[in-house]
């Protein structure tokens, strides 16, 4: 067993885990934060994207022990004081989700994208930056619209 201590959505948590435990397993199975999804499990689909020290990463391709000491933010950590994050609000406004499975990863990717590239995102940039997020439904049209609107709203 290995012990890990990390901050998840502002809360310090410690756990003794088998070193094989993936970050997404720690989040979903130990902390019951089931908003982060496992889609492909081969690090293509992006349903499991969370922020580790401010960087978007695929939590199905990171051991929990690698995140020891890190600050992790999941989809559950975006809304503040019962109010949706502007990116979440934009997805709702623009029908940016159909079945909703890819949505947590899409939103976490989108928020980091805005943090990196700013609030004015053109369609081409958004589509290229979504390379690691798959939507089977496949509602990219509205996801792209939602991210452009969410980016502006995050100003």
């Amino acid at each position: 067993m290995a012990s890990v201590t990390l901050t998840v959505n502002g809360r310090t948590v410690s756990a003794d885990v088998d070193p094989r435990t993936l970050l997404v397993q720690l989040l979903r199975e130990h902390l019951h934060l089931t908003g982060t999804h496992v889609g492909c499990d081969t690090s293509q689909c992006g349903a499991c994207v969370v922020h580790v020290n401010g960087r978007a990463v695929k939590s199905c391709t990171l051991l929990a022990v690698q995140a020891d000491g890190a600050k992790v933010v999941t989809i559950e950590g975006l809304a503040a004081n019962g109010k949706l994050h502007p990116m979440q609000e934009a997805f709702r406004e623009n029908h940016g989700l159909q079945c909703g499975f890819c949505t947590p990863g899409m939103i976490m990717t989108a928020v980091e994208l805005v943090n990196r590239k700013g609030n004015n995102l053109d369609e081409h940039t958004i589509r290229e930056e979504l390379e690691g997020n798959l939507c089977r439904c496949t509602g990219y049209h509205n996801i792209v619209k939602a991210i452009a609107a969410g980016a502006k709203a995050m100003r």
């Binding site: 960087r55 978007a56 990463v57 695929k58 391709t61 930056e129 390379e131 690691g132 997020n133």
Partner: peptide
């Protein structure tokens, strides 16, 4: 890869 893979 993709942005998340490049971050790691």
């Amino acid at each position: 890869g993709d942005p998340a893979v490049r971050n790691q």
